[in-house]
Design a protein around this nucleic acid. Sequence first.
DNA 1: AATGAATGAGGTTTCATTCAT
DNA 2: TATGAATGAAACCTCATTCAT
Lengths: 218, 218, 218, 218
Amino acid sequence: MKLKLSKVNGCSLMQYLKDDVKNSILQSALSEFMRHGYSNASMRQIAKSAGITTGNIYRYFKNKEDLFQELIQPVYEKFVQYLMEIKDDFDDSCSAIDTTNPLDYLRKVESTIVELFKESNVELRILLNLSSGSSYEPVKQELIQLAAHILKKVFIPGEDQQDQAMIEERNLAHMLAGTLIEGVCIILRDHEDGETVRQLVDELLRVYSAGIISRLNK
Amino acid sequence: MKLKLSKVNGCSLMQYLKDDVKNSILQSALSEFMRHGYSNASMRQIAKSAGITTGNIYRYFKNKEDLFQELIQPVYEKFVQYLMEIKDDFDDSCSAIDTTNPLDYLRKVESTIVELFKESNVELRILLNLSSGSSYEPVKQELIQLAAHILKKVFIPGEDQQDQAMIEERNLAHMLAGTLIEGVCIILRDHEDGETVRQLVDELLRVYSAGIISRLNK
Amino acid sequence: MKLKLSKVNGCSLMQYLKDDVKNSILQSALSEFMRHGYSNASMRQIAKSAGITTGNIYRYFKNKEDLFQELIQPVYEKFVQYLMEIKDDFDDSCSAIDTTNPLDYLRKVESTIVELFKESNVELRILLNLSSGSSYEPVKQELIQLAAHILKKVFIPGEDQQDQAMIEERNLAHMLAGTLIEGVCIILRDHEDGETVRQLVDELLRVYSAGIISRLNK
Amino acid sequence: MKLKLSKVNGCSLMQYLKDDVKNSILQSALSEFMRHGYSNASMRQIAKSAGITTGNIYRYFKNKEDLFQELIQPVYEKFVQYLMEIKDDFDDSCSAIDTTNPLDYLRKVESTIVELFKESNVELRILLNLSSGSSYEPVKQELIQLAAHILKKVFIPGEDQQDQAMIEERNLAHMLAGTLIEGVCIILRDHEDGETVRQLVDELLRVYSAGIISRLNK
DNA sequence: AATGAATGAGGTTTCATTCAT
DNA sequence: TATGAATGAAACCTCATTCAT
């Protein structure tokens, strides 16, 4: 058997080819979902871009949703996990008699976010902005809620106040959380270079931090 | 119907009826595009909501794209115009020996933007977030480019420097312009009440201004 | 308005044409379902036979199942209703000190069944033998259960005996019910002439009755 | 594998292996056709059940129809042959001055039928009830025709009379033949146990015989 | 000016069959 | 001999658009 190297190679070559096709589909799908969003993406077009026939996609993915999920799920999970860690860290640092400057805290968050975005730029943008019609549709709101939850702690150190002022603070936190996330999306969309990305996120956080601190001192 | 008015004043009455139908279509289309975006909007549903038949839409609009354009184009133009005016104002105020605080300037900009959004909230949200599949798909990027162009002036008083520092400033301006516009979009998406909208935009600009000033003083 | 007869006729003509198309679809569908059964019937083929395009079917029927149901449901309901009436009649005549000959009873049933089969020959055969894959798939077994329930009363006057003999009688009743129903199906499949149908069903019942009586006297 | 037997006796071993695979396919196919009928049976599923790959089926069978035929044809031929033998027997017993009771004759037929069904239960049920879409689709009707031809002899001792009465007898024979065959199908469908099957077929024939005799004595 | 039935191209998905390896 | 990836035609269904009335 060991001498029949041609078969061994045949096997691995075939394996390679199969992976090749699957990756080709995934890449074409990523591009198609990016261009037209989940529901307007066309399986036919994905197949054409991948250089295969439409039916052949279904050897690799059960259906459109499955193909979408295989692209997005890992990034989604990583993103949620990172956000939870950030939230837990923050909750801990709050409960401790820790007077960490929020600005310092946000800066700590920076590298985490940037790392994730640098890995999965396109997937995150699809997840957050182009998943309408898929099972991920409500994710963006959930993520913004989560980010808002963190930001609220910055603005509202004493919890559970329910008066009018607090409602305004909540709206503000929600809005700033949304714009921060969109801001990072925009940076990643427009820049490939890692150093530029890091620098811009740094600037964005600096502006937000300074603005927020100035507001808190109001 | 009385006095066969329909025949005597047939022309203007017909015109009136036509406008009536056309407005009805436009209104239904606005609602449908808002709900499902351009691609997933259904001409059948628009006709049904407007109380007419499917085929009749095509006496008033050449096709789906044409209907979309008739709704969105005016708002698009107004938006561009406002941005140009802001740009011109700023250019003037710059060329004058005018040391207007950028914060004051942005605040002046505020009412313009909020006014436009309050007038054409839905159309703008469609234009910026729900035009995928239409010819307006790339507009959002163009608008951000334009806004960035303006913001650059804030950061780079002396023009046309091409060294490395300036490139960074340009990137920063572009990024902040994008996040600002997204921020306003998010506010408009999440709040209907005019006063809340004004207040949140005010806060957003305050944070940005404070952050930017702090940065300029760096 | 009354003078615009052309419009009045236009309307009714259109209505007529619409009904015409719908009936044409129903007729083609009946033929296609008869030939290939529910799941192997082709909407394309139905459209082709009806002389229209595939998509146009969906103006008249929501989907394949809906088209099938519109053909089969009325017949199904009538059939169930008839069987229930027969069952109730029989239960009544049993509880009364009524020594009606089972043969006489079956003969009373005859006209009911024949009438229904003569009206809806093809639909019943589809319902009973060609509905695999549709929501009517389990109907045949249910109907045979019902018929068996009636036949059991003939064989087992005293109820509720659970010994071995009774199990055999139940199997027998079930089997004879099935064959009777199939027998009527076959007759209707092979003969169009009403008088011949009546006569053959009469003969079938006669054979069954004589056979059953002979068996009871065993 | 020992002694390179595969090369020495390559031919016969290969033949043996081939038969093994072929039988495995046939067995899986039988199960799949039984479960889903000819049209809805899946070649992929057959291959999977047989433990081979999809493409390999086509080394043993030209196509789906060919595979079906190889399963069904022998049973079909045996069935036809048995019916012909029965027919011949009957012709002989008629031409002889043999006053065999038709009841006795049918009882002789019984064991033949039951034996065949017990041997090839599944194949016959596929042939008679699940061959839609295959070339065997019309077989059931043909078999009923043949059975009817035999039964006619019971009812119409003197041949070739063409008057009205004879036409009725022919119809009757045809119908009873059909119901008899369906009856046996139903019994086989609902019962696995050999003894129960024999008993129910016996009952069915008894009912038919008694009914028919009663009719002949009319 | 209006109707709404009809079209035809497109959507996702399935599957018997072929073919390079 | 066997593999299993790939094909291509067909399935059901949707919908913007056209057109006879």
